Computed example of a mutant assay.
Amino acid sequence: MKKDIRFLVVISFLLLSFSQFSVSAQVRKGDFLLSPNLGLGYYYAGSGLAVTLGVNGEYAFTDEISGGGYIAYTRWTTDYGYQGNNYDYSYNFIDFGARASYHFAKLLRVSNKKFDPYAGAFLGFVTSSYSHDGNGVVGYDDNYGSDLRPGIFAGARYFFQPNIGVFGEVSIGLTPISGGVTFKF
């Protein structure tokens, strides 16, 4: 966990170091941000491939604080071989909940009005399903079930048009790295 937090801090500082300093606000009070995204990896996933499709929606309560919700679908697949038996495991996770962000542009006096660095936290719920295929007997059940899911994230957006941009995030608690498009309304 300490390594994950240090990783988020380093990424946040790297994102901020690419900006120039002077006063501006990239997200304005009243903006609504809709961000479909693709993530790689997953909080619960061990080996194998985990791909997440999600969408975040946030309303800017002030120039610095936004909040809203998220929903994400993750499919994690892996194969396992043991004593001549091969198994393909598949997990499906659905995550949904609330998230809040603090936008650092004004605090850090970022002059590039297209650049929006932010960080925040989320609290949600996850549910999962499990299936397998193989040529042997599998005595394994879905041990993930359903649970509350807290987490933190850091990211940055770059608006190449006034209302359309791209973003990248790192997080602890959902998908370690994700990115996508942001639409500002």
Rank of each mutant, 00 (worst) to 15 (best):
residue 72 A to E: 15
residue 25 A to Y: 11
residue 155 G to F: 13
residue 41 G to S: 08
residue 167 F to K: 10
residue 144 Y to L: 05
residue 115 F to G: 10
residue 117 P to K: 15
residue 17 S to H: 08
residue 93 F to S: 02
residue 50 A to D: 01
residue 75 R to I: 01
residue 10 V to A: 11
residue 66 S to Q: 04
residue 35 S to E: 13
residue 182 T to F: 04
residue 133 D to Y: 12
residue 101 S to K: 15
residue 15 L to V: 13
residue 73 Y to C: 02
residue 143 N to F: 11
residue 1 M to D: 14
residue 57 G to R: 05
residue 184 K to M: 06
residue 177 I to G: 14
residue 16 L to K: 06
residue 82 Y to I: 09
residue 118 Y to S: 08
residue 114 K to V: 09
residue 62 T to A: 07
residue 3 K to E: 13
residue 45 A to K: 02
residue 154 A to I: 14
residue 102 Y to R: 05
residue 113 K to Y: 11
residue 27 V to P: 00
residue 74 T to D: 02
residue 134 G to P: 03
residue 103 H to S: 10
residue 100 A to K: 04
residue 25 A to M: 08
residue 129 S to M: 01
residue 65 I to V: 14
residue 163 N to E: 12
residue 75 R to F: 01
residue 112 N to P: 04
residue 133 D to A: 11
residue 120 G to W: 08
residue 170 V to A: 15
residue 82 Y to R: 10
residue 93 F to R: 01
residue 55 V to C: 07
residue 12 S to H: 13
residue 97 G to P: 02
residue 96 F to P: 02
residue 64 E to L: 08
residue 35 S to R: 12
residue 141 D to V: 02
residue 40 L to H: 11
residue 156 A to W: 11
residue 170 V to Q: 08
residue 121 A to M: 15
residue 88 D to I: 00
residue 112 N to F: 09
residue 150 P to A: 14
residue 9 V to I: 15
residue 98 A to I: 15
residue 157 R to T: 14
residue 28 R to W: 05
residue 167 F to D: 12
residue 107 L to Q: 12
residue 7 F to P: 04
residue 80 Y to V: 02
residue 154 A to Y: 13
residue 5 I to M: 15
residue 102 Y to P: 05
residue 6 R to Y: 10
residue 20 Q to E: 12
residue 180 G to I: 11
residue 185 F to V: 13
residue 146 S to C: 00
residue 125 F to R: 03
residue 19 S to V: 09
residue 86 N to G: 00
residue 74 T to W: 01
residue 39 G to T: 06
residue 169 E to H: 09
residue 90 S to M: 01
residue 71 I to Q: 04
residue 36 P to C: 03
residue 31 D to F: 06
residue 52 T to P: 05
residue 168 G to K: 07
residue 96 F to A: 06
residue 158 Y to E: 11
residue 140 Y to H: 08
residue 81 G to P: 00
residue 184 K to L: 09
residue 37 N to F: 11
residue 181 V to A: 08
residue 80 Y to L: 03
residue 82 Y to S: 12
residue 162 P to N: 15
residue 62 T to H: 05
residue 2 K to A: 12
residue 84 G to N: 05
residue 135 N to Q: 03
residue 73 Y to P: 01
residue 165 G to N: 10
residue 83 Q to W: 09
residue 107 L to F: 10
residue 86 N to I: 00
residue 68 G to T: 07
residue 70 Y to N: 04
residue 109 R to F: 10
residue 182 T to N: 11
residue 131 S to R: 02
residue 174 L to A: 15
residue 6 R to W: 06
residue 11 I to K: 08
residue 53 L to Q: 06
residue 39 G to R: 06
residue 150 P to K: 13
residue 92 N to L: 03
residue 165 G to I: 09
residue 43 Y to D: 03
residue 178 S to M: 13
residue 68 G to F: 06
residue 129 S to R: 00
residue 153 F to M: 07
residue 118 Y to E: 08
residue 76 W to N: 04
residue 117 P to L: 14
residue 163 N to A: 12
residue 128 S to N: 02
residue 151 G to Y: 07
residue 119 A to H: 04
residue 167 F to S: 12
residue 167 F to H: 14
residue 31 D to S: 06
residue 7 F to T: 13
residue 132 H to F: 14
residue 28 R to P: 02
residue 36 P to G: 05
residue 149 R to A: 09
residue 100 A to G: 15
residue 66 S to R: 06
residue 156 A to G: 12
